[in-house]
Design a protein around this nucleic acid. Structure first.
Lengths: 119, 119
DNA sequence: CGCCAACGGTATCTATTGGTAACTGGCTAC
DNA sequence: GTAGCCAGTTACCAATAGATACCGTTGGCG
């Protein structure tokens, strides 16, 4: 019996979140949008090397989850602006905890890897 | 310029961590091992529906990263025990923050999803 | 008028990955 | 003897991630 939610049940909603976090791009999008709304190309350029298709998928998923809002301006040239919703913004904290951990332990992990590979 | 490490650089080590967290099984393994060492089958049964191949992959990767240690007892029948290293144990906190967030916001996410799908 | 660029994406193809099913080898229980 | 446990491995398949190319609209430029 797991008290803190049944993460071990495949149908557990927590899994959904973890899948999103693991999405590789979701986290980057959240961090990029932390300082304000951005357009599609700004996100693409900010992330670096992302296929537009994948970025679109990520953004749609995040929109569906209520993490970002998508505003289309019917201008020429078209303009689409992505903004963090309050819920999306609340993800910044957990993510920061993770990235902090990552930065702290990265040297140890690298060391462990080289040791492991040396054997 | 990103002050808290350049997560946006594809070569950034933080990415490695995020990939692990996104690993879908890594998190489960950490949570299962929180209460003490477990054997391969215990992990498999605890997670529920995991192909042994995938579990092996996950555990090898975690071993390589220095998150778990693997002990083989040359007995009959063979016995292999997996234990969280101190570094692996330190991952519990960030993960808990995430799962807490997930549980808190899950209703809102579900609602957002049904709303989105209804349109 | 013809050409090109900017924007926010699609369309198509390939590579990687996650996953299933079946098997291994040494033993033990029925 | 044959069925099954343990900790995986091997062969194979489906779904996904990613790279590359392309689309429609319009405005500027020659």
């Amino acid at each position: 019996m797991v008290t803190k939610g049944n993460v071990f049940d495949p149908n557990c909603p927590t899994r959904v979140i973890l899948d999103r976090i693991g999405d590789k791009w979701t986290v980057l999008v959240v961090l990029l949008l932390r300082d304000g709304p951005l357009r599609f190309t700004e996100l693409r350029d900010g992330i670096g090397r992302v296929a537009p298709k994948v970025l679109t998928q990520t953004l749609r998923r995040m929109e569906r989850d209520g993490l970002v809002s998508r505003e289309v301006f019917a201008e020429i040239p078209p303009r689409v602006v992505y903004t963090l919703t309050p819920m999306g913004a609340s993800l910044i904290e957990p993510i920061s905890v993770l990235t902090d951990w990552a930065e702290t332990h990265m040297p140890a992990i690298s060391k462990a890897q080289t040791q492991y590979d040396a054997v």
